[in-house]
């Protein structure tokens, strides 16, 4: 774990110049798009044209993971998280709350401790277990690949993340948690490392949104 973390840091360091370059372009394009009448947010497609196919292919993989119950269940369409491999409405109907941490007696952390206890169906643990906050719900449920891609790269919809921050989000402990919840929960269709590679490939090749 510590090793992979360090190696990622190194990788991040090497990549930082490229990313900085990309960020400038993103900024220019985002300013442009603000002026246009379209609300659609198309990113980087022009300058990384030659890699857009790779980006698209990578996003297909990313999408299969993000729409998997292990990820989607906490990015629900409504204000109640989903639960289980069948993504049913969470049995106890906990609500998102303003900060995404739940409400009153139904805070996420009341059942999802920083570490879970072992067991088939015990609540998975994480120190920061939460949903996206109510002012930016980052819904995955029901999103088409194109809708989800556009949402992911839009700082107004993705938690104010620029592409660099979005890229780094693959390292978020809650994201990683999708693979370590334990019990007899189904795992996402890719391994974590496969997902991370696809995520970077998608972003680094232009974070292209597929056509409908």
């Amino acid at each position: 774990m510590a090793n992979s973390h360090n190696s990622f840091k190194n990788y991040k360091h090497l990549a930082s110049y490229i990313i900085a370059l990309i960020l400038v372009v993103v900024f220019v394009i985002s300013c442009k798009s603000k002026n246009s009448a379209s609300t659609e947010y198309v990113v980087l497609s022009k300058i990384t044209k030659k890699d857009s196919l790779a980006s698209l292919a990578a996003f297909e993989k990313v999408y299969s993971v993000l729409m998997h119950p292990r990820c989607m269940n906490c990015h629900p369409n409504g204000d109640i998280p989903l639960q289980g491999d069948d993504s049913h409405i969470h049995n106890m109907l906990p609500q998102r709350g303003p900060d995404g941490m739940g409400i009153s007696t139904m805070k996420c952390a009341n059942c999802h401790a920083s570490t879970g206890v072992p067991g088939e169906s015990t609540p998975p643990g994480n120190p920061l277990w939460h949903l996206p906050p109510s002012d930016m719900k980052m819904v995955f449920q029901g999103r088409s690949p194109r809708e989800l891609a556009l949402q992911l790269v839009n700082p107004k919809l993705n938690g104010h993340k620029n592409l660099q921050e979005l890229r780094v989000h693959a390292e978020d402990t809650l994201v990683k948690n999708g693979w370590t919840m334990g019990g007899n929960r189904e795992l996402p269709p890719l391994t974590y490392n496969e997902f991370k590679d696809a995520w970077y490939e998608w972003i680094d090749n232009g974070a292209v949104a597929p056509a409908n």
Binding site: T105, C111, V117, P123, G125
Partner: peptide, 12 residues
């Protein structure tokens, strides 16, 4: 907070 003690390890 109203915590479920059956799912909360002592270490946490």
């Amino acid at each position: 907070d109203a915590v479920r003690s059956c799912a909360y390890p002592i270490s946490a």
